[in-house]
């Protein structure tokens, strides 16, 4: 369907090797908090993580912060990735972080979406580990994850 290459061929050698390695795979939860329906970015990132050899749990849309935190704990994930393009990020991301604190867990959280520059320092202050803005190459997100995230157990 896509002219020159099939999706499998696009996977890099590096990602195939990583997928075959015996080290425990990173488990990542990709989640869409709130009512926002823009899921293209979240799904593309989920695919990139999967192709990089990670285990990915995608929540689907319209999750409450409570649902996201429960899913993260149930699935024993090493990282939570939140996506929001509706402008509700300051409220929703904070709620997720507060709930994680309440549950006394330290799962790192990264976020992406339409996030004004001014909000980035505030999000980091709040406890978000990294913010990925539109235009970020998928391999940068994967590379950041490999460098900064290790299996929690």
């Amino acid at each position: 369907m896509y002219g020159g290459k099939s999706l499998e061929n696009i996977m890099t050698q590096d990602s195939i090797e990583k997928a075959n390695s015996s080290e425990r795979k990173l488990r990542i939860l990709i989640a869409k908090p709130g009512l926002d329906g823009h899921d293209r970015g979240a799904k593309v990132v989920a695919r990139a993580y999967r192709d990089a050899g990670f285990e990915v749990v995608y929540t689907g849309l319209h999750q409450t912060p409570e649902q996201i935190v429960s899913a993260a704990l149930q699935e024993d994930v090493d990282l939570i990735g939140l996506s929001c393009l509706s402008g509700a990020h300051m409220t929703l991301f904070k709620r997720v972080l507060d709930l994680l604190k309440e549950r006394k867990t330290e799962i790192p959280v990264i976020v992406g979406g339409i996030i004004p520059e001014d909000d980035i320092p505030k999000l980091k202050e709040m406890g978000i580990n990294e913010v990925f803005l539109p235009g970020t190459p998928l391999k940068s997100i994967v590379a950041w994850t490999r460098k900064n995230i290790t299996p929690r157990y």
């Binding site: 926002d36 990020h89 300051m90």
Partner: peptide, 20 residues
């Protein structure tokens, strides 16, 4: 988004999204 999804502005689902 709350209007699009059928939630009122005083719904807990609408927090942070009203008029955004």
């Amino acid at each position: 988004f709350p209007t699009l999804m059928g939630y009122d502005s005083d719904s807990s689902r609408a927090i942070g999204e009203i008029g955004k």
